[in-house]
Design a protein around this nucleic acid. Structure first.
Lengths: 347, 347
DNA sequence: CATCCTATATGTATCGTTACACAAATGTCA
DNA sequence: TGACATTTGTGTAACGATACATATAGGATG
């Protein structure tokens, strides 16, 4: 805060003391090879003597026109965002590329719409990456309005923003066909449908009412799959979880399994939810896939351990791709970068 | 990157178009109440027409002398840092205060010493918070050298940096006395001792050789406690885990329990390690506290669930305190903000 | 009606750095 | 030796915004 002490040492002072021009001092820090070893030494000695802390980042950013940081906007409060292993993997990917490109990663906390928009505008970053963005989120427009590059993971699509992510609808349809095959009554264990995040079991909800794009696409794909296997969507029970964790998956699956008629195929939207679902089935003595077929999503470590069929995708690579898109302009298409891993939990 | 398009709209252009002075335009964005409603409207209209994205953050930072962001330096690669629930709680606390104070949170990825130092110097932040810093870490010196405020969580202490954290040695001694009471052969399940992170079981290691301050203090406290209950430290087995997770706690505890003589009291450095330890005891049919007394640390949700005695502290509050220290200058002392929660796992 | 105060508008001078263009010094090669 | 390339050093002019001090108009007050 009181960064500007009475005495802030500047490059000019260092140059003065070293007996060289300001530019020589500047080059010493930003392009050392441009300066003779002798001058370099003089400048560094002067810097040391004066306690110069290196070129001021704000001044440098202003002059250079690049902030040296990437903004990441998470759709939820950090407390929850970081609880999601996929979010963590994604961030790790972003961080990898940031580090590689010598950039910092600025996380813009999301709290309430008004302040969030202000923070987005005020952030000194070279571009924005959005994770888990709801349709019509004001932060997305705010990010685009800054004229800096914007990459949205998963959606929503927007003019002026690039989209990174797999084709969730196609993947959902594919895994839906696997898990629903031969089932009498398919069911779904889903992420929240809207930011209200109400946990509930609903029959055949209209996917178009879902405001989280990834969830909507997956639901659409599962609807396709239900049709493919001849099931009526209006009878398909969707257990909507309020958060993406095993506990919630357990609770909601337990609810689902207590219904009559009981679903005999469960497509879950994540391996975390799936792991809770497996526990819930266990608890009531149902076996996979004999009594109930079940699939996860993400191919997390837990899917491997529990032996469940799942959709593999690499969030880490997608995070890296988002960052690379902004920092180097490299585009990459992930729509087909998913794969169904078959294990024992489905037929 | 190519932030400076051919045509970047500036405040001056907006002012021109609105027919007011640059300052009036500036005030419209930074102190709207300082400007009449009429001018404000004119300026906003002009901004809209020109597609002005708001005041440039770098320029504003330079002029105002504050970057509007807080730097957080994690001692490890993000992939691992975020896997630690305590780290996540800490970050959530930092984020809370950042949001409250209208600041962003910049995470400085740690990869290799050389580049890290450069990144620290180049980061546009108003201060640094360091988490899990090893003795003599170059980033600490680099942070201090910038003359911006620095807060270190847990240690190491350094001139020019404030320290936030509980008195780990006192807390460790206290819980050590609880778990070691009446034991014949105490043992410890520990965090890594150095950045080499080698997993191993060692008898009575010298705590002074430990380079992670928090771990060192806790080991010192446990050494004190061992002495207090009349045990010989040189015989105390310390299972050093390579990471802080349940799996590692399980593995190392299993190793510990296969030794002869078998330890009958286990002080673990986290509830994650403790939960792995509980599983390992289960696996070989040992009961708590009858066969082996066991304690955790942190009072995480898992400690509650497993009913283990633990040291309660709030990382979230500590994170908030670190941020507040930098952003508002508020200091707070956490040395006594810990508490032993007794549950069934110890006597 | 003169005086003083408040609300609003503006001109100027930086904030600290680096891009650019050019000058000077040195080296290279036939 | 002269012509030409290469290194190294420097002056100047921004980058885009805001703090501060001052100017002006209109209102309130006695």
């Amino acid at each position: 805060m009181r960064k500007s002490f009475s005495s802030r040492v500047t490059l000019a002072q260092v140059a003065d003391r070293a007996g060289v021009s300001t530019m020589t001092a500047s080059y010493t820090f930003s392009r050392p090879e441009r300066v003779s070893a002798a001058s370099r030494e003089k400048v560094l000695a002067a810097a040391r003597a004066l306690g110069y802390g290196g070129p001021d980042p704000s001044a440098r950013s202003l002059r250079r026109g690049s902030a040296g940081a990437l903004g990441v906007i998470l759709g939820e409060h950090l407390t929850y965002a970081f609880d999601d292993p996929q979010a963590r993997a994604f961030l790790a990917g972003v961080a990898d590329v940031c580090a590689e490109q010598g950039h910092a990663m600025t996380i813009l906390p999301v709290v309430d719409a008004g302040a969030d928009v202000a923070r987005v505008r005020a952030a000194a970053v070279d571009g924005y990456i959005l994770w888990t963005t709801e349709d019509g989120a004001p932060v997305l427009d705010a990010a685009i309005a800054t004229h800096r590059p914007v990459v949205v993971h998963g959606g929503p699509a927007a003019a002026g923003a690039r989209l990174v992510g797999i084709d969730n609808r196609a993947a959902a349809r594919a895994i839906g066909q696997v898990v629903f095959a031969g089932a009498t009554l398919p069911a779904v264990v889903s992420f929240p449908l809207t930011s209200a995040r109400r946990a509930q079991v609903v029959a055949g909800p209209d996917p178009h009412g879902v405001t989280f794009p990834v969830t909507r696409e997956r639901l659409l794909g599962l609807q396709d799959a239900a049709r493919d296997v001849g099931a009526r969507w209006s009878e398909v029970l969707v257990a909507v979880c309020s958060t993406n964790d095993a506990r919630e998956g357990h609770t909601m699956t337990a609810d689902l399994m207590s219904r009559t008629p009981r679903p005999d195929a469960l497509a879950t939207m994540s391996d975390e939810l799936a792991s809770g679902a497996v526990a819930a089935l266990d608890a009531v003595g149902l076996r996979m896939p004999r009594d109930v077929a079940l699939t996860g999503w993400d191919d997390a470590e837990v899917a491997h351990r529990l032996g469940i069929t799942t959709v593999a995708q690499s969030m880490r690579e997608q995070g890296a791709a988002c960052a690379r898109q902004i920092l180097t302009g490299t585009t990459s298409d992930f729509s087909d970068r998913w794969q169904i891993i078959r294990r024992g939990s489905s037929n």
